[in-house]
Simulated scan of single mutants.
Amino acid sequence: MTSVGVVGLGDMGSGIARNLIANGFETWGRDLIADRHRAFGEMGGQMAASTAEVGRNAQYVFVMVMKGTEAHEVILGEGGLAETMAPGGTILLTSTIKPAEARTIGDGLRGSGLHLIDSPVSGGYPGAQGGTLTLMAAASDNVLGDAKPVMEAVSSSIHHVGTAPGDGQVVKACLQSLIGSIFSATFEAAALAAKAGVPGQVILDVFSTSSAGSGITNNALEKIIDRQFEGTGSHINTMHKDLTISMALGEELGVPLHTAAAAMQIFHAGRTRHPEGDNWVATRVIEEIVGAELHRDAAKVTR
């Protein structure tokens, strides 16, 4: 039986682990948060006491942590995967980090006998839990071919976007600049409708059947008009971090990102005002300014 590991069992990593288990892979997992670790065990995973134990037992390991520094520590730190995985093993870097950080990790793995697939993901919490993530994978054809069964267990769309570490992260940064901009435009449109007195259901019906409708827009509007601003699996910290990466890449390459920059500020305001909220909570900041809220059945004047 192929053994697979997952380091980082939050909203995304727990979904990856769930689908690996469901597809018959012996799955080892590790998370520093006890509740996440316990939930992983309850779903049938092998609970590792350390990253090193994951590395010793797994042929493939997904790294789904929040920051580049965390990914570096998991992979190249003391007792990390580079030290404990058997030669020939493959690390799937599914975290979203800076391209330069992925390149540094790739450089650090040279001579280790391990393979690295730089493959950030898209699809959010529903995609992770449902096994329908989009993977932006960068590695050689041979490495991707060997890992295909493992990747197909968690993904419905695998794109070969490059061969070098960092290539996947570059594509993800471009994608997030677009997604963040769509989100922020949706938040503004929702606040505009609220101030004008239009019911949320009307806005959702029109937007979702127009050329502007999309999974991103429709889902955000659903959350806004039902006032679901926390616990939906899309914490605002993640998009804020991702937009920071997009903006940094634009700065590095000299590319003006006017719309993404505006989105970055909207998410920054949302995270500052409502730090425990999910992406859609940024709408509340705009609503607080204009004195109106968008609800499913009606717009509500708050002052």
Rank of each mutant, 00 (worst) to 15 (best):
T259Y: 05
G231T: 04
N219R: 15
I225F: 03
I203C: 10
R284G: 01
E222W: 00
I245D: 01
P199V: 06
G277E: 10
I224T: 13
T209Y: 05
N279M: 12
H268F: 00
T244L: 12
A269F: 02
T232G: 08
G254W: 09
T283W: 01
Q201R: 15
L204W: 03
M247Q: 15
T259H: 06
L221W: 07
L257H: 01
N219H: 14
H268I: 00
L221N: 05
L253F: 14
A220L: 11
A190K: 02
G215I: 04
I266Q: 13
I245Y: 13
R227E: 11
V198F: 09
L257C: 04
E287S: 10
T272F: 06
S234H: 14
G231C: 03
E287I: 06
M247S: 12
S214Y: 06
G277D: 08
I266L: 11
H235D: 13
Q201K: 15
H274I: 12
E276P: 00
K241N: 07
F267Q: 02
T238L: 15
A196W: 05
D242Y: 02
M247A: 13
D278L: 07
V198D: 05
A261T: 09
A193T: 08
A212I: 07
L249D: 06
M264W: 06
V202T: 14
F207M: 15
L243Y: 05
E230G: 03
K195Y: 04
A262L: 14
M239P: 03
S214E: 06
L249H: 06
G215S: 08
A263C: 04
H235A: 13
M264K: 15
G215A: 05
V198H: 07
G200C: 02
L257V: 07
L253E: 02
A260Q: 00
W280K: 05
G270K: 04
N218F: 00
K195R: 14
I266T: 14
R273T: 12
I224N: 10
N279Q: 12
I203R: 02
N218Y: 00
T238M: 14
D226P: 00
H240L: 09
M239T: 08
P199A: 09
K241R: 07
S211F: 10
M264I: 01
T259V: 12
S246M: 01
A212H: 09
A262C: 10
E252Y: 12
P199M: 04
L243K: 09
I225G: 11
H268A: 15
V255D: 03
T209W: 03
A194M: 02
M239S: 07
E288T: 04
G231D: 02
E252G: 08
A191C: 13
A190P: 03
G270F: 02
T283I: 01
A212D: 02
E287F: 04
V206Q: 01
S211W: 02
N237A: 14
G233H: 11
H240Q: 07
G254D: 10
I266H: 13
V198K: 08
E288S: 11
R273I: 04
E251V: 06
T259P: 00
V202R: 13
